[in-house]
Write a protein that binds this DNA or RNA. Structure first.
Lengths: 323, 323
DNA sequence: CTGAAAGCGCTTACAG
DNA sequence: CTGAAAGCGCTTACAG
């Protein structure tokens, strides 16, 4: 018991001398406490789950942006003395299983749809703190950390408008009346309003966020929308594909069509032309996600409103005034 | 005890009727076994560590190639009924701590230097199976899975030689007389030998594998080596930087200088010109790494020779005959 | 300040 | 085929 107190830093209950002696013996023998025994007895594991969607049989469905976040989350958890269980889940019911099986102290949900987060019930997650990254779900059982998607899209559109573009294609996944893409669409519209303009002439192209789909759209973009002079894509990986498709089709970027992305992936600065895009604060997202989750784990306060992180416009070479 | 037998599938010791009854009750109550209690009692955790180097205070030091592998490893482990503990370690002594603290059934080392793997002692890792990805270490306590680096580099050089290049820059991190980069250098030389040529006129540029370093090298490449007509870079991310640097400096790729990379990252097909490179079998690497590790975990056979995976040349647009 | 004892939820010889 | 009992390595009231 005294040894236990020393290890757990409850030095108020042990004499300095004893603490010293225990410490020395621990070092000498290379003693390492058993995490499973600890979890079992204390009913807390110092383990946090990082749960990501996984199509059955398939790989983890992690976007480049989310991949960048994983490393940062691990780093922050480690710094705070926690460990990371990385788990792909093919059905939301597996979330509850993971939580209870490992007595996870908390979980970060990365890449789930808003409706999946909203569908989480107390019966499934119990009292375990759960944080959803990039979610607009209002589920009171979860908290969130996300970027200011509205402002990001507003900045992107305002940039294109200020260059003189009017007919701008909005390219992104289909959206409902809530969520990341919807917010970006609202921000896109807002920029037009602020300039006294309307998005009535702006085509919306709906497609899943992959490089491949971007290429396909790029190839046929001017056939479908001959008057378009710019594209706002809701993800860099999509924007990169669109640029590739347009270049293939002989459409100059940014001479004929300007393109703005969203994310600021590393690779966005490697392609030609370098991509103008909206930068998200990846380190901040990861750090705040962990800190927020652990505040719940350790303090037990109830989830407040989602934390919203600033974004900024990064102007590079894929945008120019229309011809 | 009977319930335990049912859960663990030891149906030989339980009547079919009882199995059925237990199963039903488990479903009704939504019972989920406690992983920590199980680990503690059975002395096996069904947990595998994925250990990656982490500079202190810094992010995980994961290359794009290794990031792609992580998702695949998680998938394979999950399929085999194991869970993944992702952990950055800033000192190899932490490896032993992680193994013992969580009673890990095994560990995959990703991105460690050969000397770090070689330095692993029984005292640190005990009897836990450890597999090092991409390592040439001969440490008998570990097994390995890696690509055929020698052949990859040989194919790359042979491709350039067949196009007519003779003065080819070898660009990669510094290497000793063992390891991935050394193997690639040997394969590079081998291709020259097979053509009755020598690498005597081929400059070796030593630099760490980052996009930034590649750009810097690209900018000064022709100043430093005016006669060079091609570059073989030991990593795509480096090759991409080199191309960017050369284009900036007004050096045409592949018109003036051809470039071959190694890895076949997704982004290598997105840049302009699309990169000719050596493709590694990422899915195979991850799958075999897991299967091999679990063979040790479950069967307890002793580590055999490292498993070597085939590579192949992917010809795209960054290579052409010299002017 | 120190320690004996119960208990966390499982697994595993062992007896019946 | 079934189950009582010990034990895995900790934590935590509780007594001294």
């Amino acid at each position: 018991m005294t040894v236990s107190n020393v290890i757990n830093g409850k030095s108020a209950r042990v004499s300095a001398e004893t603490v010293e002696r225990v410490r020395r013996i621990i070092d000498e023998r290379g003693y390492v406490p058993s995490a499973s025994a600890r979890s079992l007895a204390a009913n807390q594991s110092r383990l946090v789950g990082l749960l990501v969607p996984a199509a059955t049989e398939d790989s983890l469905a992690i976007s480049p942006h989310n991949i960048a976040i994983i490393g940062q989350i691990e780093r922050r958890l480690r710094k705070r003395g926690y460990h990371l269980l990385l788990r792909g889940v093919s059905d939301t019911s597996e979330i509850g299983e993971a939580l209870r099986s490992w007595s996870l102290d908390g979980a970060v949900l990365l890449g789930f749809l808003d409706e999946e987060v909203t569908g989480l019930r107390r019966r499934v997650i119990g009292a375990t703190p759960v944080l959803a990254v990039d979610s607009y779900s209002a589920n009171p059982l979860t908290t969130g950390v996300r970027s200011d998607d509205f402002t990001g899209a507003r900045l992107a559109a305002a940039h294109l408008l200020s260059l003189g573009h009017r007919r701008i294609v909005f390219a992104g996944p289909s959206f409902t009346d809530v969520g990341v893409v919807h917010e970006r669409f609202l921000g896109f519209q807002k920029a037009f309003e602020e300039s006294g303009l309307s998005t009535a002439d702006c085509p919306v192209e709906t497609l899943n966020t992959t490089h491949e789909n971007g290429v396909a759209l790029g190839r046929r973009l001017l056939d479908a929308h001959p008057d378009a002079t710019a594209v706002f894509a809701t993800a860099d990986i999509l924007a990169i594909g669109i640029i590739e498709g347009m270049l293939e089709a002989g459409v100059g970027v940014p001479d004929r069509v300007s393109v703005v992305g969203f994310d600021d992936l590393d690779i966005s600065a490697y392609i030609t032309p370098k991509l103008t895009t909206i930068a998200q604060d990846i380190v901040g997202k990861a750090t705040h996600a962990v800190d927020r989750l652990l505040a719940l784990v350790e303090g037990g306060e109830r989830p407040a409103d989602p934390l919203v992180l600033d974004v900024r416009l990064v102007t590079r070479n894929s945008t120019a005034p229309p011809r």
